[in-house]
């Protein structure tokens, strides 16, 4: 039996989003990046923003190759600098959708300065922030958002706040800045969470196009490889531990009611 015998138009209920390229993803099975990529591709398509024009800014980290998967123009930024890159692109091309896609190492460690200042200037960009509490690409080192007691390759006996400081809830800081219009924390561990995340991305992109200021969508995500768990176990662990420190929901929503 081949693919054509199974997938027929009458029984096809879901398909790859139009803007998601047919490339083999390098993400580990169980990782949240693929889900968020799919959502971003769907939202751009549904909002017609590929026709208006979109420039996406890729980070350094696991999502460094995001440009291979979503069929819009991309600029690969140096580690942490995506919000500075997005700032210039949006100011030079104000009618385009401009968004960054960053992990917790990129945004909350090396790129804190650029992220805070872009948001504080109220740049009309969207920041999609994937928080899985670990450096996935380099092999599972501690990030600023790593939970207390969490084992990583650089905290092999668990993160100790006396040695490594406290887990950084950077999204809470974004909510305090006058330049942000919408700051939310979502997740992708189950279907309901995925749907909420999609709505949040849609709202963030709309705010960017409406010139309301900076929108930040944190997505608490799984890194089952880095966490050294099965995909199923990592979904449970995310709810039990990550969401305890990083509770889901809107931290700020100045988006006008439609």
């Amino acid at each position: 039996m081949n693919r054509e015998d199974i997938v027929k138009p009458e029984n096809k209920v879901v398909s790859r989003p139009r803007l998601l390229n047919d490339n083999v993803m390098h993400y580990c099975p169980g990782c949240g990046h693929g889900v968020v990529h799919k959502l971003v591709a769907e939202v751009i398509d549904e909002m017609g923003l590929d026709k208006t024009g979109a420039v996406a800014i890729a980070p350094v980290g696991c999502a460094v190759f995001a440009y291979n998967y979503i069929d819009v123009d991309w600029i690969e930024a140096a580690h942490g600098r995506a919000p500075a890159v997005a700032t210039a692109v949006k100011r030079l091309w104000p009618k385009k959708l401009v968004f960054t896609y960053q992990g917790d190492g990129d945004l909350s460690a090396i790129g804190t300065g650029e992220a805070i200042h872009a948001a504080n200037r109220g740049e009309n960009i969207a920041i999609i922030f994937i928080n899985n509490g670990i450096y996935g690409m380099t092999g599972g080192q501690m990030s600023p958002t790593t939970l207390e007691g969490m084992k990583t390759s650089t905290t092999p006996y668990g993160r100790r706040v006396d040695l490594n400081g406290y887990p950084l809830a950077i999204t809470d800081i974004f909510a305090q800045l006058d330049g942000t219009c919408y700051v939310t924390r979502q997740a992708v561990n189950d279907a309901a969470a995925v749907r909420k995340t999609k709505n949040a991305i849609k709202k963030a992109f709309q705010n960017s196009m409406d010139g309301l200021g900076t929108s930040v969508v944190e997505v608490v995500s799984q890194c089952n490889s880095g966490w050294k768990m099965s995909p199923v176990k990592s979904n449970e662990w995310l709810v039990e531990h990550m969401e305890a420190k990083y509770p889901l929901g809107d931290l700020k929503n100045n988006t006008p009611k439609k």
């Binding site: 800014i57 600029i75 930024a77 140096a78 600098r81 500075a84 890159v85 997005a86 700032t87 210039a88 692109v89 030079l92 300065g113 650029e114 200042h117």
Partner: peptide, 8 residues
């Protein structure tokens, strides 16, 4: 930030 804005 400046040089990365120029890069952009």
């Amino acid at each position: 930030a400046s040089i990365n804005m120029v890069y952009a």
